[in-house]
Simulated assay, not measured.
Amino acid sequence: MLSLYRRYADAILAVLPGNRLLALDALRGLTITAMILVNNPGSWSYVYGPLRHADWHGWTLTDLIFPFFIVIVGMSLQLSLQRQSAVANAVVIKQAAIRSIKLFALGVFLALFYYNFRDPAYSYIEQKLLTLRWLGVLQRIGLVYFFSVLIVLYCGTRGRIGWLVGLCALYLAAMWYLPYADAQANQFSGLLLFGNSFAAWLDHSVLGASHVYYRSATPFAFDPEGLWSTLPAIASCLSGVLIAQWLQTERSLVQKIRGLLLCGVIAVWLAELWHFSLPINKSLWTPSFVLLSSGYCAIALAACLWLCDVKRWRRWSAPFVVFGANAILFFMFAGLAARALMMLSVGDTSLHSWLFSALYQPLFGDYNGSLAFALSFLLLSYLLMHWCYKRGYIFKV
């Protein structure tokens, strides 16, 4: 069995271009794998604590997944632009705009891909089109990517650091000091509460209460991928750009790994200290959360570099290379498949609920059954992603 896996892993890694940074590919694959795992439990009533998001302030391992992906976008952006140094800025900006629009459109498509066939009174127009959630994971990636491209193209290292710090400072200035009011003219300022912050007020006012994720939040409905929190999310992406710049220096690999570890540990330590005055909060994407998640991402990349390029232990990364090579396709397939399982019916319940209650729950119990369902979903997804990888099909936007 072990020799079979070795041959399988070697075949996957053999087709990677020689200039690819395997550690980054592996980290991207690990991140998207974790994202799909936590998004597809057998039942949301039975999810182990680390696989849930924090209720509000604070963090879990699950809270680190999306910012890891954003930081990795920044790393990939810097490495890509370095290879396109001879391309005119106008061309790069046009390509970035097209890619961002495609990502945004894919996110909207996912939001629209649902129909409740079990409810004869269900109105797709009223309950889906007219209440479309405009923002989401892919939409945020698209927005963050485009504005990060502009900053990287026209700013050097100091300018990028300045933008990173400036965006976080601007975000905090509004969150702490700008006054806002609810429908009853009650005035607020400086709050970081669920449904009561400047970011929540902005989402409620601009997007509307029926077009965000937390529609029932009071006094303001808001979105965890909302408008104002996009600013520090861009800062997260710029941290990835700076990490990639560090990797492009002339230092030895060991020095680069030590630098990543040192910066990562310091960033995490500072973020945890900052948490006492500025809570770490993913839904608000607070600057302390930027510092924490970017720090842990730097540590994770250092670990992958040590395993892949120092110890030369590479075979473990093969499945994650497959997932990471088609990260957007993987995310889209998982989203569509999960919605299809909810739409298809078995009797008066969804196929998803039936599979969990009739198969996984009796065999494995509540929590283990829910986890086993998510792992099965991953395995089936891998079969498709592996098929695409073997045939050289990479979905690019």
Rank of each mutant, 00 (worst) to 15 (best):
Leu292Ser: 00
Leu262Gln: 12
Leu292Lys: 00
Ala340Lys: 01
Met332Ser: 10
Ser239Met: 14
Gly259Gln: 06
Ala358Met: 06
Trp316Gln: 05
Phe330Thr: 03
Glu250Lys: 15
Arg258Trp: 14
Ala337Glu: 09
Ser317Trp: 03
Pro319Gly: 07
Phe356Lys: 09
Lys256Phe: 08
Gly264Leu: 03
Ala298Asn: 00
Leu291Thr: 04
Ile266Ser: 06
Arg312Pro: 03
Lys311Tyr: 11
Ala267Leu: 09
Gly324Trp: 13
Phe364Tyr: 15
Thr286His: 02
His275Leu: 07
Lys256Arg: 09
Phe276Tyr: 15
Tyr360Arg: 09
Thr286Val: 03
Arg339His: 01
Trp313Asp: 15
Ile299His: 06
Gly259Lys: 03
Val322Lys: 10
Ser353Pro: 01
Ala244Gln: 12
Phe364Pro: 01
Cys237Lys: 06
Gly240Arg: 12
Phe320Gln: 12
Lys256Asn: 10
Lys311Glu: 11
Pro279Cys: 14
Ser288Tyr: 04
Ala298Cys: 00
Leu291Asp: 02
Leu292Tyr: 01
Gln255Glu: 11
Phe320His: 14
Ala325Asn: 14
Leu260Cys: 11
Trp316Met: 06
Leu278Trp: 02
Ala267His: 07
Phe331Asp: 14
Leu292Asn: 00
Leu305Pro: 08
Trp306Gln: 13
Thr249Asn: 11
Asn326Val: 07
Val265Arg: 03
Ile257Arg: 06
Gly335Gln: 07
Met343Ile: 04
Thr249Met: 02
Lys282Asn: 07
Tyr296Val: 13
Ala302Asp: 07
Leu247Val: 02
Ala334Asn: 02
Ser236Val: 04
Leu359Gly: 12
Arg314Pro: 02
Phe330Gln: 09
His352Cys: 03
Ala302Gly: 13
Ile234Pro: 02
Val290Phe: 09
Ser357Trp: 00
Glu272Ile: 08
Ala327Arg: 08
Gln245Ala: 14
Tyr296Trp: 15
Ser353Gln: 12
Asn368Leu: 09
His352Asn: 05
Val321Trp: 05
Phe364Arg: 00
Ala244Lys: 15
Thr230Met: 11
Lys311Ser: 12
Met332Ala: 15
Pro319Glu: 10
Ser357Ala: 06
Asp309Arg: 13
Ser283Cys: 05
Trp285Gln: 11
Leu305Arg: 09
Leu371His: 04
Trp269Lys: 00
Tyr367Asn: 06
Phe320Asn: 10
Leu231Gln: 07
Arg315Asp: 06
Gly369Trp: 01
Lys256Asp: 07
Pro362Ser: 13
Met342Gln: 14
Ala358Tyr: 05
Ser288Gln: 04
Glu272Phe: 07
Gly259Asn: 08
Trp313Leu: 15
Trp306Asp: 02
Thr286Met: 02
Leu341Glu: 10
Val322Gln: 08
Arg315Met: 04
Asn281Lys: 06
Gly324His: 13
Ala340Val: 14
Cys263Gly: 08
Ile234Met: 02
Leu253Asn: 11
Ala303Ser: 05
Trp246Val: 15
Tyr360Thr: 13
Cys304Arg: 05
Ala327Pro: 15
Met342Ala: 04
Leu341Gly: 01
Arg258Tyr: 09
Thr349His: 04
Ile280Arg: 00
Leu292Trp: 00
Gly335Glu: 10
